[in-house]
Design a protein around this nucleic acid. Structure first.
Lengths: 248, 248
DNA sequence: ACAAAAGTGTTTTTTATACACCCATGC
DNA sequence: GCATGGGTGTATAAAAAACACTTTTGT
């Protein structure tokens, strides 16, 4: 970033005035309920104007001395208790007029939103209801109209999630320590839809990559042959990092 | 301890104060000099503190009423005259302390940088020297230490450029209207290095995709067989959009 | 025995990769 | 003629996609 400093007063006056910003961080938090095959997004209900009573993405304004990612972590921690997660920055939305709190006539303080994308382990994620505002996991197909431009942000995050899944091992940040290959396939199916790949091809491809190791332990889930539990081997994966991997 | 004022103050004190931001936009502007096979980045010299006299990415602070992308366009237009370009947002850097202008002791105004990535047509790009500060195209391998965290931003942009090139038709935004397949190959080679693909395979793959149409016109450049001029057909490309394309 | 889930294998098609070679031009 | 860059084709290897089949469990 650069900008001119406060060189000369005359100079400064000739230039347009700089905008003053508050910076918000909004999180698109996904989790996958593999039991019920649902991709979920965390929404909270606004308990303040503007958009009072409307659902939105969990967000907060950045405090003094706080980094963007710290802010993202903070809201996340305020809303859910979770140990395993994947978090990355998504996109920054910053047009004037995107927040009604900006003075509509003149140009007051601007509100800029840096969005983050998170994936958390569904089973262990405990929602923290503060007793004031609502909080809920919404299935991706049933998202209501959200406050601000949050539908747009969510759409952006959803696209990122689907892409990430194809070339990056995010799923393992969010699956249990050990899992069956069906669990993994279920996970992918839930996010990407049924037609992304045939189970046996998916299986073969992933095993060939060599970073899934069979623990030898079998689990039986109702009828059918018991499945092997696998573990993600981060060290075996390391050399594949940054390679054009495809889990499809 | 009484009066409604007190309670409000107490409430406010319980919360952490929000940070106030100025928002900067920094552009990583690339161009490809196909004549000399060089990938270039636009740098400007700072004419003010901090980092006076040091090279940095062209940037500016966002003005009142101006969107982020408008600001990105504005600096770009201030530094080069160009008709064809590709521009997209890169990443937002916003930790406290990334700009020395922030008060080091207490927490004053924070400086946040939204970075943009641009690719412009080299041949038509005219640098605008304002007579005060330096401006130059730097080959990517010769980037000096830059002001702020700009080396990091540049690195980020370079990675994005290489990725984009593989699955998105950005090259055609920046090549001339008509070009030979060697021009195109040159372009890719310059950005990705020699070993990304064999020329004849590259050629076959791209032609099979069907969005390059042969104009029939031949050009001769020195010795050797004259080459056909091709044109990028945006309509033929449209259906391939969002598909997992690989130009490699 | 049989359905259900897990796991293996086989066949076909499509892509990637590495080359060898022909073509048209300037000198 | 021959060097130079443009353009085509082929042979091999690897990967993707489709799908048939076996194995092991619960009921």
């Amino acid at each position: 970033m650069s900008g001119r400093g406060t060189k000369k007063v005359a100079d400064t006056l000739k230039k347009q005035a700089l905008a003053d910003f508050k910076v918000g961080v909004d999180n698109v938090i996904f989790s996958v309920d593999t039991e019920q095959n649902r991709l979920l997004v965390l929404l909270v209900m606004r308990d303040d104007e503007p958009y009072l009573g409307q659902w939105c993405l969990p967000g907060t304004l950045v405090r003094k001395g706080e980094s963007l990612e710290d802010a993202a972590d903070r809201i996340l921690a305020e809303k859910i208790k979770v140990k395993n997660l994947y978090l990355e920055q998504l996109y920054t939305f910053g047009g004037p007029g995107r927040d009604p709190r900006e003075a509509p006539d003149s140009f007051g303080v601007r509100y800029l939103a840096v969005s983050y994308f998170a994936l958390v382990r569904f089973a262990e994620a405990e929602l923290i209801a503060d007793g004031v505002s609502g909080i809920a996991w919404y299935p991706i197909e049933q998202i209501p109209p959200l406050a601000f431009d949050h539908n747009q942000i969510l759409e952006y995050g959803y696209r990122r999630l689907r892409n990430k899944l194809e070339y990056s091992p995010v799923a393992f940040d969010v699956l249990p320590e050990v899992f069956t290959l069906s669990d993994l396939y279920q996970f992918y199916t839930t996010v990407l839809g049924e037609n992304f790949s045939d189970y046996s091809n998916f299986r073969a491809r992933l095993l060939k990559l060599g970073f899934l190791c069979d623990t030898g332990i079998k689990v039986s889930r109702g009828a059918g042959r018991p499945a092997s539990l696998y573990r993600f081997d981060a060290e075996a994966f390391a050399p594949l990092k940054d390679k054009p991997l495809v889990f499809i």
